[in-house]
């Protein structure tokens, strides 16, 4: 039982990183970024390129991947989302599906569709009070918590974070107060790229790397964000942890192949019973 809880928390933390990214971009840009899955994949492959093809240690390769993906995200914003600023959110939604196609298939084009892995040695799992813990799980735990503390610090304790929250609450008012929307948006893309690529590398270390690895996380991600209240980063973390734990527990009663269906059920239930999520405020929109 404790083992299941532990596994659940770790896989929840893995979902939490991109879920925070998704919820930040939603807060500022006001559309759910369906390309988030392919951003995870892209980040994982940039790290793969540096790690396997060039021979950089994985730790450094993960840093390079974060920088690389941030550059890609800024480029995409410049080419795709900036011309569409002010368009209704359905247009942005459909555009993000287009971005998803481009990113995932650039990966296929450059790296092929085979399953790959990082150049790391696999260690035996540790035993600790009857629990089985492997090195990847400890790493995920530490890195994810660290990343979330950093994001929390940026959001709550820096002028950038204040500007970000202002734009997310009321873009017009923020604009009047002289906050540059484009700068805030750029920062949000950099943060969400760093979070997604970190998640991509961790997912790749724990499991496999293939072009669909990010897409498989899209549903749990959206489930986490909706459960926590869309646009609320703290809620996204909470939602992700709940999804992770429920998914692990579901394997007790369901065949493991149906793990992902948990996300579907949670999305359906939340939308039916509490569409604004656990921490979100009910919003009266138009």
């Amino acid at each position: 039982m404790l083992q299941i809880l532990l596994n659940g928390i770790v896989s929840g933390l893995l979902v939490a990183l991109p879920a925070v990214a998704l919820s930040l971009t939603y807060g500022v840009l006001k559309f759910p970024n369906f390309a988030i899955g392919s951003m995870i994949t892209f980040g994982a492959y940039i790290a793969l390129f540096f790690n396997v093809d060039i021979g950089v240690p994985l730790f450094a390769a993960a840093g390079l991947a974060a920088v690389g993906l941030a550059a890609v995200a800024l480029l995409i914003d410049r080419l795709v989302y900036r011309p569409l600023r002010g368009a209704d959110h359905v247009t942005l939604l459909v555009a993000s599906i287009g971005v998803y196609f481009v990113l995932e298939n650039v990966v296929r084009f450059l790296f092929g569709s085979d399953i790959r892995g990082y150049d790391v040695t696999v260690a035996r799992p540790h035993r600790w009070m009857g629990l089985r813990v492997n090195n990847e799980q400890i790493l995920i735990f530490v890195v994810a918590l660290l990343a979330m503390v950093i994001v929390w610090f940026i959001l709550m304790r820096t002028p950038f974070g204040r500007a970000m929250r202002a734009v997310s609450d009321n873009p017009d008012l923020a604009d009047v107060r002289g906050i540059s929307r484009n700068k805030v948006i750029a920062l949000v893309w950099v943060i969400s790229a760093a979070l997604s690529s970190t998640a991509g590398v961790l997912i790749g270390m724990d499991g496999i790397i293939d072009p669909l690895m990010g897409w498989n996380y899209v549903l749990p991600l959206f489930a986490a964000v909706i459960l926590g209240g869309i646009g609320n980063p703290l809620g996204a973390v909470l939602g992700a942890l709940i999804i992770g734990i429920v998914e692990e527990m579901s394997t007790l009663v369901l065949p493991t192949t149906y793990r992902q269906a948990v996300s579907f059920v949670i999305i359906a239930l939340v939308l039916l019973l509490r569409p604004h999520g656990l921490l979100g405020k009910p919003r009266i929109s138009r």
Binding site: P83, L84, G98, F101, E104, N105, R108, G112, S113
Partner: peptide
Amino acid sequence: AGQAASLRLILIGVGLILLLI
């Protein structure tokens, strides 16, 4: 063959975005 297939899908994505813009 795989690269040609992915190039087609890239074009779909680009086409969709260009249409929207």
